[in-house]
């Protein structure tokens, strides 16, 4: 590990000022991703600014039943918060489906959003990787691509964003609150992460020194919601494909009609993928299998799978249709609202 110095941040403005002055500094939150990268040589900062003692650990009520979650709230505490369990069960489920009990006790909301890809070549400094080292090439293309993207990738990088939590947040229309050198701003979670394009080294739209201070959740949407994760083992594994969905069905007329639907996909793109094309097909349609498959197909039309991840196209299609069937009760009458266990 390359030597670095260590500082403990005592206030948010000071933390931002330190990083803004020092291009070679990084924030340390739970450390479950950064400490790994320090060991692997993927991150080589000269200064680590530890933000664990910042006062960003509260979950507060917003107007209209929304919630503001401090950036340093631990993933396990957010998942267990009674208000989140009641109002945003999809978020609890997504958090609980990530990593392990002990990792979630350390992992923070901010760190989870900004965790980096699990692409094996990104983590292996002996192989070329455009994300780690711009213009060195992409080892995944033509290599191991089981965990890689089928949507929105570029010839420069085909990596996926690994977070489960971020997928639920994108479907919930959550916002990140960011403190930067120029003050505070808000960015929708669905717009926080970038597509790789020509600059895969930039995961997000944040600038160096930007500190995530909180997440804001709008009031819960009407309807039912769930998070479904498909992975190579039953627990403690990253998603191959995941689906976060809320659907609201109007049952007042002679035939039921989908009033509103929000869907986000994980494990298939460089960012949590909000499935707007699928949502457009669903809105106003009758909830049945034909509609669900048409919605999935509309989203997956642009899919460009790689050698090692062709299976993700039918897997995503099936996952979207299954989740929608369960949420709208069109599979069996008595499925529960949250049913995500596998």
């Amino acid at each position: 590990m390359r030597p670095f110095d260590y500082e403990r941040a005592t206030d948010t403005a000071g933390a931002v000022a330190t990083l803004t002055e020092r291009p070679d500094a990084v924030f340390l939150a739970g450390g479950t991703n950064l400490v790994d990268h320090l060991k692997l040589g993927v991150a080589e900062p000269r200064l680590v600014v530890d933000i664990n003692r910042l006062d960003l650990t509260e979950i507060d009520e917003l107007d209209d039943e929304g919630l503001r979650i401090g950036a340093m709230v631990r993933n396990s505490d957010a998942a267990a918060d009674p208000r989140i369990r009641r109002r945003y069960p999809m978020l609890s489920r997504a958090l609980l489906s990530g990593a392990s009990g002990q990792l979630r006790n350390a992992a923070t909301m901010g760190g989870n959003l900004l965790q980096r890809t699990r692409c094996v070549y990104f983590q292996d400094t002996s192989t070329p990787c455009n994300k780690r080292e711009p213009d060195s090439g992409c080892s995944a293309i033509g290599g191991y691509t089981r965990y890689h993207a089928i949507l929105g990738a570029s010839p420069e990088c085909v990596a996926t964003h690994p977070s489960d939590m971020a997928v639920a947040l994108a479907a919930l229309d959550a916002t990140v609150v960011v403190l930067g050198a120029a003050g505070e701003r808000r960015i929708p979670v669905a717009e926080l992460h970038r597509l790789p394009g020509d600059h895969p080294e930039q995961d997000t739209v944040l600038d160096h020194g930007d500190l995530i201070t909180a997440l804001e959740l709008p009031p819960p949407r009407p309807g039912r919601s769930t998070y479904r994760k498909i992975r190579d083992r039953a627990s403690y594994a990253f998603a191959l494909v995941s689906v976060a969905a809320t659907v609201d069905v109007d049952t007042s007329g002679p035939t039921p009609v989908i009033r509103e639907a929000a869907i986000a996909l994980g494990g298939i793109a460089h960012k949590p993928w909000r499935a707007r094309a699928a949502e457009a097909v669903l809105r106003g349609a009758e909830p049945n299998e034909e509609t669900f498959l048409a919605a999935a197909d509309a989203e997956l039309e642009a899919a460009e799978p790689l050698e090692g991840n062709r299976f993700k196209v039918p897997m995503t299609r099936g996952a979207i249709a299954t989740v929608l069937s369960e949420l709208t009760g069109t599979d069996e009458p008595e499925t529960t609202t949250e049913d995500t266990h596998e």
Binding site: A79, A80, R86, S97, S100, A234, S235, H341
Partner: peptide, 29 residues
């Protein structure tokens, strides 16, 4: 403390430590 896991059926209910719950909660080891 009634913290749920991803296999907990009712997120708001009390926790019964079934074998499935134990397996899920111990999966980090």
């Amino acid at each position: 403390e009634d913290a749920p896991s991803v296999v907990t059926e009712d997120l708001e209910g009390p926790i019964e430590l079934s074998d499935a719950e134990i397996r899920e909660r111990m999966s980090g080891n």
